[in-house]
Design a protein around this nucleic acid. Sequence first.
DNA 1: AAATACATTACTAAATCGCTCAGGTATTAA
DNA 2: TTAATACCTGAGCGATTTAGTAATGTATTT
Lengths: 164, 164
Amino acid sequence: MNITSKSRYAFKIMMDLAHHSIASVGLLDGVIAPSSIVRRSDIAHRQGIPTEYLDQIMMRLRAANLVESVRGRAGGYRLGREALTISLWDIFASVEDNIFPVECVGHGEPCGFENSCITFGPWAEIFDSMRAPLIRMTLADATDKWADELRMSPIGGIRECRGG
Amino acid sequence: MNITSKSRYAFKIMMDLAHHSIASVGLLDGVIAPSSIVRRSDIAHRQGIPTEYLDQIMMRLRAANLVESVRGRAGGYRLGREALTISLWDIFASVEDNIFPVECVGHGEPCGFENSCITFGPWAEIFDSMRAPLIRMTLADATDKWADELRMSPIGGIRECRGG
DNA sequence: AAATACATTACTAAATCGCTCAGGTATTAA
DNA sequence: TTAATACCTGAGCGATTTAGTAATGTATTT
């Protein structure tokens, strides 16, 4: 399962958006207000992502309907649907080019050696079992479980953190 | 979880050795005969791995005690311990340089932004949950479950299969 | 119309991957 | 003893991918 910086950044972006969606929920009793729009430059600054690189990642997230964009002067981004319905697999798969490092799994292109390859059978099960927890864990899970860590300062941020 | 061709080859190698270990089991009633020694050139030929590249992978597998080598004219390799005690995680981790694509997980080196990083918490759980099935699945599981696919012709093999 | 946002394509330096090459050491059958 | 065959090690290299820049264009709002 190939997870590159695109996935790391995409995850940060979605967590940032989810955090700001939460902040705008429940303004009226029982009413979910529309998620507030977050400027891309704010996300880029807070999460330490080069703005132009963030654009490329946003393009993919948008193509997968994971985010919605609002153009114009007061534009920005918001979540494309509820955080509860967005899995980490959705996020990673939408931005990675080759999330399956084994050709015979995923693309569906037969390599022609299915019957003689000693490891053809196992790989499908291996990736299924690795993908399962990613499908199970949602963006809402992540924001809820690590809510304490979501205290993002409006300025500053975490530019130098190359990990998460 | 980075899985490159080193893992793919290593998996093939271990499956090949496991298959030939099985073949030498039970020669005497209730007695496990020592695993037969498999020549590296045979493995390379059967599994379609460049011999010199196989050497490098074998070096790592040996360092992790996943294989034993026997030097000399009739030398070769055999499993370092029972297939039942070798997990896929053991195999992949032994040959991959950067199996964790996120720096703050695995190496234990703090990046210094643990308290402000929005995704620091989730990554540890994500990788734990992806690693778990790899730890759970053993080489013996793979050989048992896909025993039908283990009919390896002594000559020929599966050189061209780039996937598994 | 100016400001600010998003959209898109092309390009590139650096790192990694997959593999080759060259040479070495150890062991044993004959 | 010696030839044969195995394993061991490090350097190097082209192709690919990654991560990020740059330049330019389009859309919307104040």
